[in-house]
């Protein structure tokens, strides 16, 4: 097998183990609630419901879903089997809507918001960080503290400030939602325009904070690379500065890719809360609603989905990284 193939298999194995741990945590942690989870849940959700028939029906549904009378490990297998067959439970808040249906409606919004925002912020941040390290002087003196300050602003804080400034005071952008609620989703220009207008502020607040964090990391990596021996050697062999800058950029960029993998969990978390501020119809807002209504199946569906998405993103980044950094391949060769 090629060195890269081995690398992929190894990574795949580790992510598979991590996936099982994530699923197990998602299964176990909510079951640490005192008492029989289903009766607690049912008690909470049926407050106000008087028809005993309904309560019974709800109870039976959940008892069947959780396999409540079985031992824990059997419950876990039922849980995994249900997950694999697409049965992620039934929402309490929007009973009897299946959790998967709610999540499916939210996923496109969240991906459409976060994927471009994180990528754009990551790219701009890295370029700015490299420039700050390379140009030094005024550039560094301005970019660095600003980036450090922006990076210290939590995602949702910036989101709130932007909401206040651009939506409320200046009225340039709408305050809530993913599109005008008077409209019926369609493929018309008008609808797309509305989606874009609603997209702008949450997008920008994620981009800005991401830029801050990435610029700081990239600046540090670039300074480190600029001080390395190969830069001096290349200079003394007469290679022009612009080309050396390219060497440095590339080499500083590689750890930034791993950095992206490691920080993507935090970024996604921050962005989800950003959605709440703008009542953006993605996973984050649903989770907010679910927590307020103590809609446990939906909460657990959201957390599981987020964990899965972050794992998948990490795995993808690891594969790309292994492909482009020659050092990984060499390390694999040594193992053989």
């Amino acid at each position: 097998m090629s060195a890269y193939g081995k690398y992929v298999v190894k990574k795949f194995f580790w992510y598979f183990v991590t996936l099982i741990v994530a699923i197990a945590l998602n299964f176990l942690l909510p079951r640490m609630i005192e008492g029989n989870p289903v009766s607690v849940i049912v008690a909470q959700m049926t407050q106000g419901m008087t028809e005993s028939d309904t309560i019974k029906r709800v109870y039976d549904t959940f008892a069947a879903e959780f396999g409540i009378d079985q031992p824990l490990h059997v419950q876990f297998f039922i849980y995994v089997k249900n997950l694999l067959t697409g049965n992620w439970g039934t929402s309490f808040g929007l009973y009897p809507k299946p959790v998967t249906e709610i999540l499916a409606s939210a996923i496109p919004w969240t991906i459409g918001l976060q994927l471009p925002a994180i990528l754009v912020g990551w790219i701009i941040g890295n370029v700015l960080g490299a420039v700050a390290a390379y140009r030094k002087g005024v550039f560094d003196k301005v970019i660095f503290p600003v980036a450090l300050f922006v990076n210290s602003i939590p995602f949702f804080t910036l989101a709130i400030i932007m909401l206040y400034a651009f939506a409320l005071t200046l009225k340039w952008f709408p305050m809530h939602g993913g599109y005008d609620y008077q409209m019926i989703p369609s493929l018309s220009w008008e609808f797309i325009g509305s989606v874009l207008r609603h997209h702008t502020l949450p997008f920008l607040s994620i981009v800005l904070v991401t830029i801050g964090g990435q610029a700081i990391g990239m600046r540090e990596m670039s300074i480190y690379e600029l001080n390395s021996d190969y830069v001096l050697y290349s200079k003394l062999l007469g290679i022009r500065d612009s080309r050396i800058a390219r060497y440095v950029f590339r080499n500083a960029m590689l750890p930034q890719i791993t950095g992206l993998a490691l920080s993507i969990g935090t970024m996604v978390g921050g962005s989800l809360i950003c959605e709440i501020v703008f009542s953006y119809p993605g996973i984050g807002t649903w989770m907010f609603t679910a927590i307020r209504q103590l809609d446990y199946p939906l909460i657990s569906g959201c957390t599981l989905l987020i964990a899965l998405a972050v794992l998948l993103a990490n795995f993808t980044i690891d594969l790309i990284y292994g492909w482009i950094d020659p050092r990984i391949k060499a390390a694999q060769m040594e193992d053989q």
Binding site: V21, A22, I33, G265, Y296, I299, V310, L311, N314
Partner: peptide, 24 residues
């Protein structure tokens, strides 16, 4: 190291939510 790596990849705020939801 394996445990550490696993918990670095699983987003901590997911665990944070799951535990917080479970504690009254």
């Amino acid at each position: 190291t394996a445990v550490t790596n696993i918990f670095i990849v699983i987003p901590s705020f997911v665990i944070l939510i799951l535990i917080s939801v479970s504690i009254d």
